Amino acid sequence: MAENSAGENNDVLDLDALLSPDELQLRGSVRAFVQERIKPNIAQWFEDAHFPLELVPELGKLGVLGMHLKGYGCSGRSAVEYGIAAMELEAGDSGIRTFVSVQGSLAMTAIHTWGSEEQKNTYLPSMARGETIGCFALTEPTAGSDPSSMATRAVREGDTWVLNGAKRWIGLASVAQLAIVWAMTDDGVRGFVVPTDTPGFLATPISGKLSMRASIQCDITLDNVRVPETARLPFAKGLRGPFACLNEARYGIIWGSMGAARDAYQDALAYAQKRMQFDKPLAAYQLSQEKLVNMMLEIQKGTLLAIHLGRMKDAGKLTPAQISFGKLNNCREAIAVCREARTLLGGNGITLDYSPLRHANNLESVRTYEGTDEVHTLILGKEITGEAAFR
């Protein structure tokens, strides 16, 4: 956490001391990008329900698309560095961080982990540059938390696969050039790289959203979509394929949610220091200070947790249950921080002049996708009791 406008230090635990010079330099670069390109525009983008496609190649130049992957034009940065980038991007808006996550943690990771050399060389370099956008089609209208019940089917006919079904809440699908589509086959769940201009593929943006308005989520219909055998991800079999990608995205959320919380807190703190009521600033009242302290405590603890999990990931020791721990805790606390921050802004807090309620609304989506609170609670419940309680 940086110093606020009044000069007081918000990094009470001195968490910056846990970061290397390279990590701090990366944070500075991404933070400057957010300050210059996102913050001046995000209120209008959110109000207009507009995703700024012009940012995509800029994010490629910034080196944050698939930045945790090695080779094929990707940056090959550490897990902690990816987390730092996610935190700074989500301090701008969850929709922008979500794009980076869908592109890198989901679509690019699927190809990098489960794809053929030909698929990697064909798609990953242009995706890293932001010239090709990918989406990740797993969730269905009737299969959200339980992907094993997916109804989308892929049937092989010689050297061709025919896909039929529907997907829902698929980020960026209407502007993507390729989709990673997961479908049930006679041999279990398989993944396919499907160009979005393939006949029978239709992506329709979901309207009327109260959250993630500066982003795009879609319904997809697959009507006899035909792709060659070479479109199948050869090393993905079963739910292990999509779950590995989901864990990459969940890891980024651990960091990103704290970025949203930090930005909301800093907005509230700056406001409380300037807003005069009963002849003194709001920040001089005990109740205001209690709110600010409680927010600061959760942000510092959540950021410390993110750093710890990031170091474990870089050491190859991070488990899915530990990722669930971070996602459940940090999303839950980030929403509470943003809502509390709004209270310090009074009526002004319900406008787009300030970030807390926008962040809180966005975090309702972040809290839901890549596993709801309930799913992560049950994952952790199984971890500590040894008993699976999903059914």
Rank of each mutant, 00 (worst) to 15 (best):
E3S: 06
N4Y: 03
S5T: 08
S5K: 09
S5D: 10
G7Y: 06
N9K: 13
N10A: 11
V12R: 14
D16H: 11
D16V: 08
L18V: 00
L18C: 04
L19I: 02
S20I: 07
Q25G: 10
S29K: 15
A32F: 09
V34N: 05
Q35E: 05
E36V: 07
R37F: 05
I38S: 12
K39L: 04
A43M: 01
W45Q: 05
W45D: 12
F46D: 07
E47T: 08
A49D: 05
A49G: 11
H50P: 12
H50D: 05
H50Q: 09
F51D: 15
F51R: 15
P52N: 14
L53K: 13
L55H: 04
L55C: 06
E58K: 08
G60D: 05
L62Q: 00
V64N: 08
L65W: 06
M67N: 06
K70H: 06
G71E: 09
Y72S: 04
G73D: 03
G73T: 01
C74F: 02
R77P: 00
R77E: 01
A79N: 01
A79K: 02
E81Q: 15
Y82C: 00
I84M: 15
A85P: 02
A85T: 02
A86N: 15
E88W: 00
E88K: 01
E90H: 02
E90C: 10
E90T: 12
A91Y: 09
S94C: 14
G95Y: 01
R97Q: 06
F99G: 11
S101I: 15
G104S: 08
S105Q: 15
T109D: 08
A110Q: 04
A110M: 13
I111A: 13
T113E: 11
W114H: 14
G115V: 13
G115K: 08
S116V: 05
